[in-house]
Design a protein around this nucleic acid. Structure first.
Lengths: 171, 171
DNA sequence: CATATTGATAAAAGTACATTATTCTAGAAT
DNA sequence: ATTCTAGAATAATGTACTTTTATCAATATG
């Protein structure tokens, strides 16, 4: 026997889907489907960032002390078109906290001011040094007493690839 | 007048689309459509990684010396579910290259072996220290002579949130 | 009266299809 | 023989439609 009749107000409520918001069908390369679904599901590779304070004796990360959600790429890379990475070799910048095998984030849209740490091409090698630019003199300064500054004479041209914005160090 | 007949070999060739590969329609949250299309179009936030060698006098980044394409999130985060970030306060680990305001990448799925740099909750503060674990003794060791080790007595429990895998430093 | 059942309803999710874009060639035009 | 072109072929694309899932409320049941 039917139990039918009007059912105003019935129906699946809004926001009960996987994403709690309306979705749209878009077309993406097959090879990226998995990563994109993961990307969408995790809210864009965002992970929690904790600050300094937590409840005393708190045994595990708690939402209460989150400073925010962070996406590394979004946070570190302001203009993908002008950003690249460089792997560090050598110890010449050790006192600036730049170690061998670290990865540097380099932005070539920034201006090479005096005092900036720059990536420069010198004699077939990429090198990272602090730029000295005073009274018409240009030097590439290491931050390690065992290395000597590189003087750029008035005849030479210095090819600066970009400005180092971040250092990624593996412990 | 008809010019019909067989046209074997005709037709739009494969791989002539935006992505040079077959695509699939997937459903994603409306708010992320733009970012995901950008993500898909740029091949997943991958940027070039350069090694040490370049052509002498090479004035700008060239494809010839790329070591590979790198996606930060992919490279640094192995398991998003067990990874989080911590912002550093204080100078206690300065000799390990960990400075105030650096961001640490922390994995809580790794084991807290002796010698690892860990994130621990001590007296309502998150702290980063090197873990000392020998002959039944447990200590949190700073890497700065002006700080003292924190001894963990047999009665006390140490809440280790995770193991530091990377340090992100802003120059 | 409290609870269980089930059709009504509507959003979400996935997919098929119509449309668009691109290239190729048989035949017409020169 | 050579060039031109309409239409044939086929992949790419975006969206409409179908299927699935989730919730509600009217009614029956105990």
């Amino acid at each position: 026997m039917p139990r039918g009749g009007k059912r105003s107000g019935a129906g699946r409520p809004k926001g009960t889907g996987k994403y709690s918001e309306p979705t749209k069908a878009i077309r993406v390369p097959e090879s990226m489907v998995e990563r994109i679904l993961e990307f969408a599901h995790s809210g864009g590779f965002k992970l929690p960032l904790y600050g300094g304070k937590v409840a005393a004796g708190c045994p595990a990360p708690t939402d209460d002390y989150i400073e925010g959600m962070l996406d590394l790429s979004e946070h570190l890379i302001h203009d993908p078109a002008s950003t690249f990475f460089v792997r560090v070799t050598g110890y010449s910048m050790i006192n600036a906290g730049i170690h061998p095998d670290d990865i540097l984030i380099v932005d070539r849209s920034l201006q090479p001011y005096h005092g900036k740490i720059v990536i420069a091409a010198v004699e077939g090698e990429l090198t990272v040094k602090r730029l000295y630019k005073k009274q018409g003199q240009v030097r590439l300064m290491p931050e390690n007493d065992e290395f000597d500054p590189i003087e750029i004479g008035p005849e030479e041209t210095l090819h600066i690839w970009g400005i180092v914005t971040n250092v990624i160090h593996t412990v």
